[in-house]
Every structure is written in C-alpha cells, then in structure tokens.
C-alpha cells in the first residue's frame, strides 16, 4: 500500500475505507485495518480540498495518500458515480485523477471480478505469456459461445449456472438440486441473454465440523488464497476459509449469511526455518 502512494513520501498515510458497521464484511475490514496498522475510515471521515484528500481528526485535517477501499466503484464518489451515495467521498475521483491519492484496488478493477473474465483466464495467460496456467480453472462453459451455450442448455440439470456480472452468490442455479421450474427459469434467462451466463460442473465442496444452531454439524466450505502484487508478487501464508452456515448449502458468501473459519497452514519445520 505504501509502495503505490504518490511519489516522494517517506511515510505515506494509508487508510482502509469501509462502508461501515452495517456492511456484512465489516469484521474483515476491522481485522485488516488492525493487522495493517492503518486507520479504518468511512466516507464521512474523508474530505477533499483542492484535489487533495484529508481525514478529519481531532486536531484538524490530516493528509491521506493511499486508500485501500472496500467500497464498490459506484459508491466511491457521488460527484462522479451514484449521486445518492452516502458512503463515498465527494471529489475523491478528482483527487485520484490529479495524482494526489492512490486508490487500491484501482477504479475499474471490478471488471476482473466478472465471471466471464475468469472463463477466459487460461486463454489470456497463453496469449500474453505464452505459458500454460499452473493451476487449472474449474471447467467453465461460456454461453456467449455457441458451443458453450448448447452444452449448457443440454446439461442444465448437471451444471451450476452463474450470471457473469454478479457476486455474493446471487442469481446462481445449482442444476442437480434445482426443481423443474427453477431449471426452466434458468433456461429462459440464459436463452434471453446468453452473454450474461457461464456454467460449471457442481464442485463437491469439502465439509468441516461447524458450530450451528442444533450443535456441531458438517458444513460446506471453500478456501480463498490471497496474492499480493506490488513490485513483486507473493502468496500470503494463509487465506480466508468461508463456510456455508445452512446445512447442505453450497453458497458460502458472507452476504448470504456465510461465515468464516480460521485457516491453518502447516509448515514443515525441517524444510522451512520460519513457521507461518
């Protein structure tokens, strides 16, 4: 975060910009801010003057140089994006354009979150790096391509269909678990707008013992690893384990009531001097 601050600063002020306590990921924002040792701010704490960003402290305005934002693009600046955003900072994009503040992730990076981009990753790697991907994708069928669309429609009851522009587990149909009506609904949506859809086989997510209302029971989970890219890239020795709190559910997203678990990385002391 310090590396990307506007030039010439020994000790740039980094902040984490959160939508606040009512966001489902607020706990994570607190955790990250604490581990990074940076102030956790909300939009109302920041103010832009002459294209420079400041935070309101008890001793007045303090300059801010890098913003790690956990706020979606459209809420960032009511002057540029959604005018009804109460969570953003008026003038923030102006300050960013003027080069006076760095925003991470950069505005527009949300496009990489699009599931259609995921589907093309193996081809992107090949095209730009002439390499094979080291970790393979989940087999993904792209409905904007005739072949993928046909395969998807022919096998709807075996596939998971996902809208490309959504996140948080919304709009997903899990074929093997869907009713006839749900499958027909998914079929209609895909036919109406094939570009908006991809499909994947249902992944047999692993389970772990989880404390639930009725006691300890199995719940599905997945692992999100994190890779930080600055001047160099490195993989964090840990990750986010997300867990579906509903019995049998494969939707682990926190915005749909999913929880998180500790992630343990077991280090081999013989080969590795430092434990994670």
């Amino acid at each position: 975060m310090s590396e990307i601050a506007p030039g010439g600063l020994d000790d740039p002020q980094v902040v984490l910009l959160s939508p606040g306590i009512y966001n489902s990921a607020y706990f994570e924002h607190v955790f990250l801010a604490r581990e990074m040792g940076v102030p956790l701010v909300v939009g109302a704490d920041l103010v832009v003057e002459d294209d420079r960003v400041y935070m309101r402290t008890i001793s007045g305005l303090k300059p801010v140089h890098t913003i790690y934002r956990r706020l979606n693009d459209d809420f960032l600046d009511p002057k540029v994006f959604r005018p009804d955003s109460m969570l953003g900072v008026p003038g923030l994009i102006g300050a960013w354009k003027a080069g006076n503040v760095a925003i991470a992730n950069a505005v527009g990076t949300g496009v990489a979150d699009d599931k259609a981009v995921y589907a093309y990753m193996p081809r992107i790697i090949k095209y730009y790096l002439s390499e094979e991907p080291l970790i393979h994708n989940v087999e993904t069928h792209i409905c904007r391509e005739a072949e993928g669309l046909k395969y998807t429609l022919d096998n709807l009851d075996k596939l998971v269909t996902k809208p490309v522009g959504e996140s948080g587990g919304y709009g997903i149909t899990i074929g093997p678990r869907a009713s006839k009506e749900e499958l027909e609904l998914a079929r209609d949506s895909i036919r109406a707008n094939p570009e908006n859809w991809i499909s994947q086989p249902m992944i047999g997510l692993s389970v772990a013992p989880t404390l639930a209302e009725e006691g300890i029971g199995p719940r599905h989970l997945d692992l999100r690893p994190f890779i930080v890219t600055g001047k160099e890239s490195w993989v964090l020795p840990g990750g986010l384990t997300r867990v579906a709190m509903k019995r049998g559910s494969l939707i682990v997203n926190s915005s749909q009531g999913g929880g998180s678990k500790d992630t343990w990385v077991l280090a081999d002391n013989c080969n590795n001097g430092s434990a994670a």
Binding site: D11, V38, P39, V41, V42, A44, D45, M55, R56, T57, I58, S59, K62
Partner: peptide, 8 residues
C-alpha cells in the same frame, strides 16, 4: 508516528 485520532 502519531497516527492521529479520527474525530468520529
């Protein structure tokens, strides 16, 4: 350094 205290 002194990180300051947000007014909020």
């Amino acid at each position: 350094f002194d990180p300051g205290l947000l007014a909020r």
